[in-house]
Simulated scan of single mutants.
Amino acid sequence: MSEATRHAAAYDAVVIGGGVMGCATALHLAEGGMRVAVVDRGPLCREASGVNAGTLTLHMTRAALVPYAMRAWQMWMDAERWLGMGVLATHVPGLTLAFTEAECELVELRAKARRAYGAPIEVITPERAREIEPGLHSGLLKAGYCEIDGFASAYLTGRAFRHALTHAGVEVLENAPVAAIDSGDAGHVIRLDAAAGRAPLHAKRVVLAGGVWIQNMLAWLGVQIPIKVLINQLIITERIRPVMRTVLSVASGLLSLKQFANGTVLIGGGWQGDGDRERGGVEARPQNLVGNVRLAAYAVPALAEARIARIWLGLEAETADAMPIIGDVPGVPQAYVIGSAHSGYTSGPFMGRIMAQHILGQEPDLPLFDPARLLGMPMPGA
């Protein structure tokens, strides 16, 4: 860092990445008294945080993350209070379905594992499941039931966070890609892409919150941690009559379903499309589209009458051990990283809170996930 930049930082913290985790971190830092800026290469929450299924579920959350997801679930339900604007968070029960003996075993094992971390999940009979959700296929053998479930409208997330950040005095820089970070004893200089037309930002602390792009962002600081990229396909139907009133998933993990108040049904389940970190989602895979829709219509036969309105692709990040990366960037003072959580939208608000607590010198409500554990690990799936 040159002598000219060795002055008091203009910001106490600059958060790079304006998704749920980055925005939540910035908001809590500002509420803790810091001068904060959020920088994103596009609009807030328009990458993974704005195009995911918006599911707020414990069934599809990894067991060890259940305590985080439960706290975040409450934050989503209270969004209007702490964000000043709601995201249509809706509390409905959740069911995970088993149609084969192998899936029955999975339902039992996963319910037990999540109960060990505090999730109120019980295994119920098909008769009881159909009392809760009458439209289920007659071939159902068993189901996991959780009262704490629901969904939000992901596309409203950016609007709500922008409102809260502005109210808290956070400077929001959208459409401002970062080109590089120069770090030294005096802090960090964040250099923006020339097309942004902005001068470099000076910060005492920098927080990397770039989702699947965390791998590239860490490389700015000379740190190599591999992050796997998933290209998830999502489907929305045209409006149909009410056919379901819960959040549904299949024990195999290949289906998630919910029906919104306007009658549209969102079909997901992690079926993959084509794309990568550099290009984003490029193209849906027709065979996966057909497979996902057929599974949805099997689970809830009335969905056979639904017509697809739109499909799109959302990017999801995963570390080598499939757990989040939240904590200090190894070897770089006053640099932090947060992201790559499975079901990251569900847990995002709480993850941002504990990241901010750590940066503010407070004891986080729950433990972080030390990034140093991932140094030298191979690329997930390699």
Rank of each mutant, 00 (worst) to 15 (best):
7 H>A: 11
7 H>Y: 09
12 D>C: 04
12 D>N: 05
14 V>Q: 06
14 V>H: 06
24 A>K: 00
25 T>P: 03
25 T>G: 04
27 L>I: 05
30 A>K: 04
34 M>V: 10
44 L>W: 08
50 G>H: 04
54 G>V: 11
54 G>N: 06
63 A>F: 09
64 A>W: 02
67 P>H: 09
70 M>K: 14
71 R>E: 13
75 M>S: 08
75 M>W: 01
78 D>T: 13
84 G>E: 04
85 M>R: 15
90 T>C: 15
98 A>W: 15
101 E>V: 10
104 C>E: 12
105 E>L: 12
115 R>G: 09
120 P>R: 13
121 I>D: 01
122 E>K: 12
127 E>Q: 14
131 E>K: 15
133 E>I: 14
133 E>H: 06
135 G>R: 01
135 G>F: 01
140 L>M: 09
141 L>V: 05
144 G>C: 10
146 C>K: 05
150 G>T: 04
153 S>R: 14
160 A>P: 00
163 H>I: 02
163 H>Q: 07
168 A>E: 06
168 A>S: 11
169 G>E: 07
173 L>G: 04
177 P>I: 09
188 H>I: 07
189 V>Q: 10
193 D>I: 04
199 A>K: 08
200 P>H: 07
201 L>S: 03
202 H>R: 15
203 A>R: 05
204 K>A: 14
205 R>Q: 12
206 V>P: 00
220 W>M: 12
221 L>N: 00
223 V>C: 13
226 P>N: 11
229 V>G: 02
232 N>C: 14
233 Q>E: 15
241 R>I: 10
242 P>E: 15
243 V>G: 03
245 R>Y: 06
246 T>R: 01
248 L>K: 03
250 V>P: 00
251 A>T: 07
259 Q>S: 02
260 F>I: 06
282 V>A: 12
291 G>N: 04
293 V>P: 00
293 V>L: 12
294 R>T: 08
299 A>T: 09
301 P>R: 02
307 R>P: 01
316 E>L: 13
318 E>P: 01
329 V>D: 02
330 P>H: 04
335 A>R: 01
335 A>G: 08
339 G>V: 02
341 A>N: 11
344 G>Q: 07
345 Y>K: 01
353 R>N: 05
354 I>Q: 04
359 I>R: 06
360 L>W: 13
360 L>D: 11
361 G>L: 04
362 Q>D: 06
365 D>G: 14
365 D>Q: 14
370 D>S: 10
380 P>Q: 03
